[in-house]
């Protein structure tokens, strides 16, 4: 940042271009949101003895417990079912975490938004980076589990790369959009939290979609999260995700970005007044 002239008026930094500039300027402040996210994670566990290990521990407890009780219902062997649950649950936590974090991404940062004129996207990246760190910590557990169950990396494994790119791209738009809406309409935050709680049961994480009959399998396919989880889990289980899943995920991604861009273009600069 060199010496610069900034102009503030009703139209400055609004519109889609303003949104894009905001996303870009925020991205450039990588050191800031990285430090922020890391601080926040440490802070959350500061007074516990096990600290950040709780992220891994609580993940293991869930996966272990669920696998023990549900493996009989799934028709899969315990070893492969544990990996199935672990992968699905890690993906699910990341995705649903974006909904819940997204609703608070701006309201919880009001202390900064009202104090400094930072790009609003900084708060989105900070929140997203925090989720990614948690996701990475969970993978520390999942990868040994996979090796234990006899997993061998193959060409299909590489499909995880586009999947993770899609996850991140989606997360930015989802959080920005939900953050703006729930800053204006607080009820949206409560609604999203309630729905997210339900999602774990209607998404094939604890159960296997392939085991269902036609109508139920179709119902599971109506849930976009089924496809989001599938494109991550299937390649790591050595299966090719269905083309339907790729198509749904890419389609939904476009729709979310469109909604986020429109919403941000019109309402972005109202944000400080809403907090």
């Amino acid at each position: 940042m060199n010496i610069q002239t900034r102009r503030y008026d009703l139209h400055a930094a609004s519109g889609v271009l303003g949104f894009v500039k905001d996303l870009w300027a925020g991205l450039a402040m990588v050191e800031l949101w990285r430090t922020f996210a890391w601080d926040e994670i440490q802070q959350r566990y500061r007074r516990s003895m096990l600290g950040v290990s709780w992220i891994i521990l609580s993940f293991l407890m869930f996966v272990g417990g669920v696998s023990f009780f549900f493996s009989a219902l799934s028709g899969r062997e315990l070893e492969s079912f544990i990996v199935y649950v672990a992968l699905g649950y890690a993906a699910f936590i990341f995705i649903s975490g974006n909904f819940i974090d997204g609703c608070q991404v701006f309201t919880s940062s009001h202390v900064w938004i009202k104090a400094l004129s930072l790009p609003y996207s900084v708060h989105v990246y900070r929140s997203l980076f925090r989720s990614l760190l948690i996701f990475a910590l969970q993978m520390v557990v999942v990868i040994p589990l996979m090796i234990w169950s006899g997993w061998v990396p193959g060409l299909l494994t590489l499909l995880v790369v586009p999947t993770l790119v899609l996850y991140v791209v989606n997360a930015v738009a989802v959080q920005y959009l939900l953050g703006l809406i729930s800053a204006r309409y607080e009820d949206v935050g409560h609604l999203v939290t309630s729905i997210t709680r339900l999602l774990i049961f209607v998404t094939p994480i604890l159960w296997v979609r392939e085991g269902l009959d036609g109508a139920r399998a179709f119902a599971a396919d109506l849930n976009p999260l089924t496809h989001y989880v599938e494109i991550f889990r299937a390649p790591l289980l050595g299966e090719m995700p269905r083309m339907t899943s790729w198509a749904v995920v890419i389609g939904v991604t476009f729709a979310i970005w469109l909604a986020a861009a429109l919403c941000a273009a019109v309402f972005r600069r109202r944000l400080p007044y809403w907090l």
């Binding site: 010496i3 900034r6 102009r7 503030y8 930094a13 009202k114 400094l116 004129s117 400080p272 007044y273």
Partner: peptide
Amino acid sequence: AGIYPPEEGFVTVEGRTTS
């Protein structure tokens, strides 16, 4: 400081600002 956008009129600020 660039925190609240104006509703009418405009503001220009030249130089690095801290508030």
